[in-house]
Structure formats: C-alpha cells, structure tokens
Design a protein around this nucleic acid. Structure first.
Length: 376
RNA sequence: GGGGAGAUACCAGAGCGGUCAAAUGGGACAGACUGUAAAUCUGUUGGCGCAGCCUUCGGAGGUUCGAAUCCUCCUCCCCCCA
C-alpha cells in the first residue's frame, strides 16, 4: 500500500491524496460504505461501483468470523472472491463490537470473550487471532484489535483501556509482521488511536501509534455520543501528531457535515453506517438538506429526490413515490434511499477533493455545512 | 317470514355496574439512528386554561349514589332456516 499527497488546502488542514492498493487506487479524501457481513445492505455491487462509485468498502471481522465463518472464506479464496467485490476492501477488527456488544462480552488482558449475538456461543478474540482472521478475509487494509471506549468514560478507565489497546497493538503488529497474506497480494495494518475525550491520553496514544510508522493510522473511540465540538477538537489534536505522509482514517464518522469538517482537520478516510442505516429508516441526505421521506409533507410532492442529485435514482423516482414505497414497506424503498445516500456521500467527498485541488475548499465547505444540516 | 348474534375511538377488537378517556393489534403522525445485535427502536394518536375539568362506547328514554356495562323502545348490520 502506498499513499501520495496530491494537494493541500491553504486555509485548513484538508488534503487530497491517492492510496494505491493491490485492488486499485483510492482517491482521498474518501468515504467508505460499510458492508459488515460482506454486503452493503440493500445495495447491489453494480450500483455501488457504477452509480455510487464507491472506491473501497468495509467488512467486519467479528461478523464475518461468525458468518459465513473462516472455513468458507478460506475455501472461497478470501472475501474479494467470495462476494465478488474486486476493489479495495478494509476490515474492521471487532474493536467496535467490544463496545457495541458490551453486554455479552468479557474483557481480559489476553483478549475478549464474546457471546455470539446469533446463537449465544462463546468465542475468544485475541489480537493474534484477529490478525489471522483478517488474513483469511484478505482485506487490503486490516485494523488493529482495540477497545472502543464508550461515552461518557471515566479518566481512569479510559487510561487503562488505552494501555490495553496499546499492548494489543504490539501483539497485532508482531502477529501481522510474522505472517503473510494468504492470497498473493499485500495487506496493510492500521493501528488505532484511543484515549476517549481526554487530551493528554489522546496525545499519548497518537504519539505511540505514530511511532510504529505503519502504512496508515486510524482514530477510534469518537462519534460514540460525545458533543460534536469535542470530536472535532480531538480529531484536530490527533491529526497534528499523526504523520502527514500517511493516510488518516477517522472511524465511524459521520453525518455529511461531520465529514466535511473532519476533512478540514486533516482526515483522509471515513466510514459510517449512517447513509445506509438512516436511508433504510427513511432519511435522505440531499444537497439541500435533510429529508425524512416518510413525513406527510412529501405525500404529493412529485419533484425528484434531490434536484442536484447525481444518482440515477434521483431522476428516476419522485419524493411522493419513495414515500409511498416506505409507507407500503416495499423493499425497493430502503434500496432507493441507500443508493441515493451513498451516491450523495461519495459525490460530497469527490467534490471536497476537487475543491482542495482547486484551492477553494474552505469557502465551499463552510457554505455546504450550513445547507447540509438544514431540515427540509 | 322464523330463529340467533351484534352495534365500542381512523380500522379491527377487548371490556360486560364503580379502579374506563376505555386493553391489545393495525393504521396514521412524529422522533431517534455516527468503525451495523438495526428492512430497527421510541413516542403520540377525543378536547381544554392538562397533577384537574369537559364531551365520548348506534339513537331516545329509564333503573342506580354511580352505566360502555342493567331495562324498554327505535334504527342499522351480520349469520342460519324458509
């Protein structure tokens, strides 16, 4: 994996770059659709590639390990072969599940014992095992196994958790560096900065993570419910410490406005379930603001989903029709909304990239953020 | 024509003398959703000057301290037999 900076905004920390992987080039800043179980929910790869123009998608170690399981993934020849997605792939390590499944899991120094959310069976994830699983999945970018701390989080807990994440990172790196890709192409390992909302911990963690000089670095443990200003403040702080010549990945972010603000702070990669999950629940992110398409006000609105929308669904379907599909609980409804939202997200980061290269990013960003948070 | 059963909030449908402004579904309306335990979850759904009051359970009377619940008549619907 290789990262090249192509341009830098003058009034902010925003930058445009290019990541080379075995499965193709990623132009940054980039938004990565989430495909937890090897599928971006409700969206065909055809739409994902040709309409949405996704350049990289996520998969999830925990979910793929449970289903379909390592045996199937290895026999398939990795996730790329299994699901047919031949562009870059990034897998999250299960660190987020340490957070979101906190009720059914036990933390230890050695690792985490999970109870499967599917059948209740117990499974142990150690840093070594998580590396091995991601080797089997064959993602171009693998994530270190971490603990994503919740919000709010006591300083003492945040500090201890960060220490554990750092010790686990060392073990991840050892395991990663002493094993090889199973399918003949290189994989990269991104470490993750933790430290909750505490500046001193974030500084300490960022310095530790930066010291390994891996091919890219991630910021985790944000967008878990903390005030958005705190998220920005910490993102800015951590970006100032992470190396400039490596991509920075802000995990789990966010709303369209969050994405533009994060780019302005020096973030290159982001992922979030929001365009797909909120889309399935009837929320559209458009160039003019937010739409809850289930609202009565759209009942007889025969205008297109987003007048400036670039997706074929924007001109193919009207707001009234999409509302009808949601009312009738047709499966086409979440499909249309997901395609629209993802197309919009990818359009947004593509525009951001253009503006950075043109040198007009900050003005454009400030104007966009106002529009994007407006409720229609 | 004879026999039986029933009319409850937007719909379906409990309730069968006080604890009922009325269970439960559905629908409708609104909100939430940030490295996906999510095609999920939550709230509201008679009115108001809203810890209280007012008008509601087909219609009109009646019994009772008190009626959606009991009685009388009326109207309308459903089922079976002819």
């Amino acid at each position: 994996m290789d990262f090249t900076l192509k341009g830098q905004d003058k009034k902010s920390k925003a930058r445009a770059g290019e990541i080379q992987t075995a499965h193709g080039v990623i132009q940054t800043p980039i938004f990565m659709p989430v495909g937890t179980v090897g599928s971006v929910k409700a969206v065909h790869f055809n739409d994902l590639k040709n309409d949405i123009k996704a350049q990289i998608i996520l998969g999830n170690t925990y979910h793929l390990y449970l289903r379909p399981g390592l045996d199937t993934l290895e026999q398939a020849g990795g996730l790329h072969k299994f699901n047919g997605w031949d562009l870059p792939l990034l897998t999250d390590s299960g660190g987020y599940q340490v957070y979101s499944l906190s009720g059914t899991r036990k933390m230890k120094e050695e690792g985490v014992v999970f109870q499967s959310h599917i059948d209740g069976s117990r499974h142990t994830f150690t840093p070594e095992k998580v590396m091995d699983i991601q080797r089997v999945i064959g993602a171009d970018i693998m994530m270190a196994f971490d603990e994503c701390t919740p919000y709010p989080c006591e300083y003492d807990y945040a500090s201890k958790s960060m220490g554990l994440t750092h010790r686990w990172l060392k073990r991840c790196i050892d395991q990663f560096d002493s094993t090889e890709s199973l399918y003949g192409y290189p994989q990269a390992l991104f470490p993750i900065v933790q430290g909750s909302v505490y500046r001193d911990l974030r500084i300490q963690s960022a310095e530790e993570i930066a010291s390994y000089g891996r091919e890219g670095n991630a910021i985790g443990g944000l967008s878990v419910g903390e005030p958005i200003e705190i998220m920005y403040e910490l993102t800015e702080l951590v970006c100032s410490i992470l190396p400039e010549n490596k991509p920075r990945y802000l995990m789990g972010v966010g709303t369209p406005a969050n994405i533009l603000e994060s780019i302005a702070l020096g973030i290159d990669m982001m992922d979030c379930v929001m365009p797909t999950r909120n889309g399935r629940n009837g929320m559209l992110f458009t160039s003019e603001g937010l739409i809850n398409i289930k609202n009565e006000k759209w009942k007889n609105d025969f205008s297109q989903l987003d007048p400036n929308g670039m997706s074929y669904v924007d001109s193919q379907y009207t707001r009234a029709y999409l509302r009808h599909l949601f009312q009738a609980q047709e499966m086409l409804a979440p499909m249309i909304a997901s395609v629209h939202n993802l197309n919009f997200y990818l359009w947004l980061v593509g525009e951001a990239r253009k503006k950075i290269l043109e040198g007009t990013f900050t003005e454009w960003k400030n104007k966009m953020v106002k529009q994007l948070t407006h409720r229609l």
